[in-house]
């Protein structure tokens, strides 16, 4: 459904007298991802790994250095950037901070109606109907239609963000840290809701997050990102039960203990991983520290490793 081929996004570091490009930061470095229809793909990594840049590139918010993005087989790399491109109806984004991503000067009605006005010629009546339908879908009552963002709770705001993203009936949603800023109880609400919507509208998700527990809960396929590249990709079972890349292991071992009884086990695991990291780093990263290309080790499981037989 969505395919990213050899995507690279380099940010120039400028300086000097003539503001020359001194060096480049390879935020995304030759990255390829294939997301099947109806799938929830979790892109996981730490801050600065390039996961947000990848997401923003898909919806055309970033300048792409090289590579291409295909949607249902059509190349959309350049068309997605055009404001009224029909492809924009199909791909929508949900942002991390539900407060700053909603225009504080607009009412809930205006916010949810905005994409409808931007695309297609709908009558005011149609727009009204659709907005009402969407807000009820996300569990916000009709009498809140003319309230402003600050009058809603964090969870409600995030649901408004979701409603806005869904009004055009998109098939593909990029969710960038959509639940990270929320409190535990609200987070649960939004996670449930995103799952529900996926079933109802047959949505495909690219779920970008640093939280492995959340991704495990929501996603069927996971890509682990490090230094602008995917270092391991597989099903939830592949990643959690049979992690191969040292960085995946490091991330998994860093997840806070679920239950106090696991403390010793987790600490031991961390120690092992740290030791393993020292011993096997060269198998996963080349001399310059760049992760190797992905190699298939099972039909669903790929690892960025020097030689497959190192596994």
């Amino acid at each position: 459904m969505l395919e990213i081929k050899n995507l690279s996004v380099h940010f120039p570091v400028r300086g000097g007298i003539l503001n020359r490009v001194l060096s480049v930061v390879k935020a995304v470095d030759d990255l390829s991802i294939k997301i099947e229809e109806g799938e929830a793909y979790g892109l996981v990594g730490e801050s600065g790994c390039g996961k947000t840049t990848t997401g923003r590139s898909i919806v055309g918010l970033n300048k792409i250095t090289s590579g291409s993005i295909f949607y249902n087989g059509d190349e959309i790399t350049s068309t997605i950037k055009k404001n009224n491109s029909p492809i924009r109806e199909h791909i929508q984004m949900i942002f991390q901070d539900p407060y700053s991503s909603l225009n504080s000067q607009k009412t809930l009605y205006q916010i949810v109606a905005e994409p409808l006005r931007n695309f297609g010629n709908r009558s005011e009546e149609e727009i009204r109907k659709r907005v009402l339908e969407m807000t009820l879908q996300v569990g916000i009552s009709e009498d809140a239609l003319y309230k402003y963002p600050h009058e809603f709770s964090g969870g409600q705001r995030q649901r408004i963000g979701i409603a806005r993203a869904l009004t055009l009936n998109p098939a593909f949603i990029v969710a960038d840290e959509a639940v990270s800023a929320l409190d535990v109880s609200i987070q649960a609400q939004v996670i449930n809701y995103m799952e529900e919507m996926q079933g109802k509208f047959n949505l495909t998700y690219l779920f970008i997050s640093h939280d492995l527990n959340v991704v495990k809960h929501l996603c069927s396929k996971i890509g682990i990102m490090h230094k602008g590249r995917i270092v391991e990709e597989g099903t939830v079972e592949d990643i959690f039960e049979n992690p191969q890349h040292i960085y995946t292991k490091k991330l998994l071992s860093s997840i806070p203990t679920e239950h106090p009884r696991d403390r010793e086990k987790v600490f031991k695991f961390r120690k092992e991983v740290a030791k393993l990291h020292k011993e096997t780093e060269h198998l996963f990263y080349d001399e310059s520290g760049r992760p190797y290309d992905l190699k298939e080790i099972s039909p669903t499981h790929k690892v960025a490793i020097k030689e497959v037989n190192n596994v």
């Binding site: 649960a188 609400q189 799952e195 527990n213 495990k216």
Partner: peptide
């Protein structure tokens, strides 16, 4: 309400 190994693939509890 937090996602963990017990409630994987289940709905999370919402307060």
């Amino acid at each position: 309400s937090i996602p963990n190994s017990d409630n994987n693939n289940k709905k999370l509890y919402v307060i």
